[in-house]
Amino acid sequence: MAEHGARPARRGWQWLLLIPILAPLPVGLYDRLEPRLWGIPFFYWYQVGCAFLATAVTVLVYQLSRRGRR
């Protein structure tokens, strides 16, 4: 058992979170109509798609940071 508030060992993985944080920020790159998905312009489906990316990366970071701690 960790002592009070021991600094978690594997915190470096947290930097991976920069990927989903930065993904919706380059507005100029995704402010376009094509390619469309089910008739939805790229602008919209790309941003909604970032939600999947955010969940995937966060789950990965969570698992990687936990590994080997217990």
Partner: peptide, 14 residues
């Protein structure tokens, strides 16, 4: 509101 909500989640992790 959509990208704002999305980036707030990984930020919340930290």
């Amino acid at each position: 509101a959509v990208p704002f909500a999305i980036i707030s989640a990984p930020l919340a992790y930290v």
